[in-house]
Amino acid sequence: MHAIDFKEIQEKLSDGFRPWQRSFQFWARATDIYTGYKVFQLRMNFVKDVNKHEEMWERQHELAAHKVYSMCSDLGGFFLKIAQILGKPDLAPAAWVRKLVTLCDQAPATPFDAVRVVLEKELGKSIEQVFETFDEKPLGSASIAQVHRARVKGDKRDVVVKVQHPGVEKLMMVDIRNLQIFALYMQKTDIKFDLFSMTKEIEKQIGYEFDFKREANAMEKIRRFLYDNNRKSPVLVPRVFPNLVTRKVLVMEFMNGIPILSLGDEMAKRGINPHGKMAEAAKFNILHSLSQAYGQMILKSGFFHADPHPGNILIGKGSEVALLDYGQVKELPDHLRLGYANLGTWYSYSSQV
Rank of each mutant, 00 (worst) to 15 (best):
M1V: 08
D5M: 02
K12V: 11
D15R: 11
F17D: 01
R18H: 01
P19F: 00
Q21N: 06
T31K: 00
D32W: 09
Y34H: 09
T35W: 03
V39M: 03
F40G: 12
Q41T: 07
L42H: 04
L42V: 15
F46E: 11
V47C: 04
N51H: 10
K52R: 11
E55R: 10
E55V: 15
R59T: 13
E62S: 14
A64H: 10
A65T: 04
H66N: 15
V68Y: 06
M71K: 13
C72H: 02
C72Y: 03
G76M: 03
G76N: 06
F78W: 05
K81H: 03
A83T: 12
A83D: 12
L86P: 10
L86Y: 08
P89E: 09
L91C: 06
W96H: 11
L100R: 14
C104P: 04
P111A: 09
V117M: 07
V118K: 02
L119N: 05
E120D: 06
G124R: 09
I127H: 02
Q129S: 14
V130M: 02
F131S: 06
T133V: 06
K137G: 04
K137V: 14
S143H: 00
Q146H: 04
V147R: 07
H148I: 04
A150H: 02
V152K: 03
K153P: 03
G167N: 05
V168Y: 01
V168R: 01
E169R: 09
K170G: 08
I176A: 06
R177V: 12
N178H: 12
Q180P: 12
F182Q: 05
A183V: 10
K188S: 11
E201S: 07
F210T: 13
A216N: 07
L226Y: 14
Y227P: 04
D228A: 15
N229A: 15
N229F: 05
K232N: 14
K232P: 00
V235K: 04
L236D: 12
P238Y: 01
P242A: 12
P242I: 05
N243C: 03
V245L: 01
E253P: 01
M255W: 05
N256I: 12
I258K: 08
L263W: 01
E266V: 15
M267C: 07
A268D: 10
K269D: 07
R270K: 00
R270A: 10
I272L: 10
E280Y: 01
A282I: 15
K283C: 07
F284R: 06
I286N: 07
H288C: 02
H288D: 12
S291C: 13
S291M: 07
A293Q: 05
Y294G: 14
Q296P: 11
Q296N: 06
I298R: 01
L299P: 03
L299E: 01
L299T: 04
S301Q: 12
F304K: 03
H305R: 04
A306W: 08
I313W: 00
K317S: 15
G318V: 14
L323Y: 05
D325Y: 00
V329G: 14
V329R: 05
P333Y: 03
H335C: 11
H335Y: 08
H335M: 00
L343M: 08
Y349C: 11
S350C: 09
